[in-house]
Design a binder for these strands. Structure first.
Lengths: 342, 342
DNA sequence: CTGAAAGCGCTAACAT
DNA sequence: ATGTTAGCGCTTTCAG
């Protein structure tokens, strides 16, 4: 399993071939000024001939930085994360930092912690979407590497942390449903494991709105599942098959809302006349569904701006004093799957 | 802008604190067998106390490998790529390789080449989705690092290359439309720059089907644009506004098809009764749209399997002799936006 | 303008 | 069972 060391061209090879020192080669490659024009050409020629490429591992070891920030998300396929990744990539590009995305595999907190933190040193900074992590685990991590957490509710931690207002967003969404006459609001998506994770928070907002409107919650309307399209579809089908009536659906994210819309259409139910539907996340697709999906916008731009600002600050200035904790407000987006207020 | 070297804990620090050599620390960390139980504990304790974390840059420099494979795609937000990334991550995990995804920014071939190849050495292997790259540029690259190209038509290159059958998929899709009575098939999406890029190939299949069916093509039905939802929407709107009649839409990908579906619905046109619609890519969302989108499936599983096999082979066995060129067949998926064949 | 020396943090190979 | 030596490929001093 050995590498064929002979095929790897090093800087020393180039230097030898061009009859200069490695230092001069280094200078040419990095476009440093004080190199003779003719020398430069000789070096460039040698590089071309030998097909030399810098060894970034060595460069990084030396430089102590990599120029890349990692973004660790539970899953790549979820449009929310894919779109977040795009927005962050845009912003970090402006700071000459490249974003690379990796997957943690969600709920499995072990894996997440392991992956994300063992690799910390590969990155100048890490943006970690915490899904289900135990605050205690976070607490034991010894590192002053630049890290920004995104996702859940306030965590006791020494890391900067930006979150969307899950509870309030869910409250607003549910309240709108209730205010426009719904009395039996199904809640769809999210695993039923306690914890302060995202589904739990959105569920909290759902409960809150019911309490405020003094509308009782029927626990049978609580359909928990994973967050795929299929889960949204099957959740609604299950409700229908079991004959459990409902006049609105609060989907814990837009993806399951999409699945729900489909199930409703298949059942011949009209949206929003028979059943209102509202999602969460405001993914790009929401506006283009038929009918267009009402949803909760978690403030995409502000979120991305905050994350970028926080992380770049840490990277350039080193560990900051107090960890910041930023809550980006959520906003209802009314489209065609809900009935307007009055 | 100096790093605070004092806060970085190295293996030597741990060794000193535990009263052993760095080698012993290394052995403990890597779980190598021949370490005394009591020594091990001392080391572990020191690690915990100091909050030591391995420096992966150094490890990689030493090991000559990183355990990560890069996936460079034009854009993260496109569900096709997001879903591809997920499938690849699954498969590479089985080989103890982690996939990290980065964005090349599509069409700008310079950037793409630059990004993808300058970083080659960071990865044990690279999967590069070539969008618009000039074969000549690829040709000049000197490297025998493991690379698998995905995307377009056959390229003269020394890299393994797996592609979907763009032309045939498009031909099948268009042929179905024509066979079920459509005579004016709008083609939607894709920049109109010549080249052997994806849009051009799918356009070729479109033309081919028309030729085979002896149906003339009205160039005004060719609406080229970018590949966002909005572009699909606006493309159809433009056709409608200009009063250019059409009875079917071949969308160059599912995302623009989604936009088109929405525009059609807004205009009160029934799908497929008034206008048939077919997309390309078979993204997960397609099956859940209302109505469910007929599309061309590019053989997702086979594609991912092939890519994984090719790249892992290169990584473990070194440069192979002949570069492989694999075309994964495309298959029509009939759902609700097209009328069935007779 | 160019070069020599030293060392980033780690681990394979060889002592002990 | 543990330590010593050497060096991965690069770049930062500091000398020419």
């Amino acid at each position: 399993m050995r590498q064929k060391a002979s095929t790897v061209v090093t800087m020393a090879d180039v230097a030898r071939s061009a009859g200069v020192s490695t230092m001069t080669v280094s200078n040419v490659i990095n476009g440093r000024p004080r190199v003779g024009a003719e020398t430069k050409e000789r070096v460039l020629a040698a590089i071309g001939e030998l097909g030399y490429q810098v060894n970034l591992a060595a460069r990084h070891l030396r430089a102590g930085r990599t120029g890349v920030v990692g973004l660790a998300v539970p899953e790549l396929e979820n449009p929310y994360f894919a779109q977040l990744a795009g927005r962050l990539a845009d912003r970090f590009e402006a700071h000459d930092l490249r974003v690379v995305v990796e997957r943690t595999g969600a709920s499995r907190e072990r894996e997440m912690e392991a992956v994300a933190f063992s690799r910390l040193r590969m990155y100048d900074g890490l943006i970690l979407s915490v899904v289900d992590i135990d605050p205690a685990e976070l607490g034991q991590l010894r590192t002053d590497a630049p890290v920004v957490l995104i996702g859940e509710r306030a965590l006791p931690s020494r890391f900067d942390h930006v979150m969307m207002d899950n509870v309030d967003g869910a409250r607003q969404a549910t309240a709108h449903l209730l205010a426009t006459g719904a009395r039996r609001v199904a809640m769809l998506g999210g695993e039923p494991d306690g914890a302060a994770n995202m589904p739990a928070l959105r569920a909290e907002g759902y409960a809150l709105a019911h309490a405020e409107a003094a509308v009782p919650v029927d626990p049978r309307l609580n359909i928990r599942s994973s967050f795929r399209l299929q889960d949204g579809y099957e959740g609604i089908r299950a409700l229908l098959d079991r004959g459990i009536g409902f006049d609105a659906v609060f989907a814990l994210n837009d993806v399951v809302a999409m699945g729900a819309l489909r199930a409703l259409a298949d059942a011949g139910l009209r949206v929003p006349a028979d059943v209102q539907v509202i999602g969460f996340d405001d993914i790009d697709e929401a506006a283009y569904l038929v009918p267009a999906l009402s949803t909760v916008s978690p403030g995409h731009a502000e979120m991305a701006d905050r994350i970028t600002a926080l992380l770049t600050a840490q990277i350039t200035d080193g560990p900051t004093g107090e960890p910041q904790e930023i809550v980006v407000p959520a906003r209802l987006v009314h489209r065609a799957t809900t009935t307007p207020l009055s």
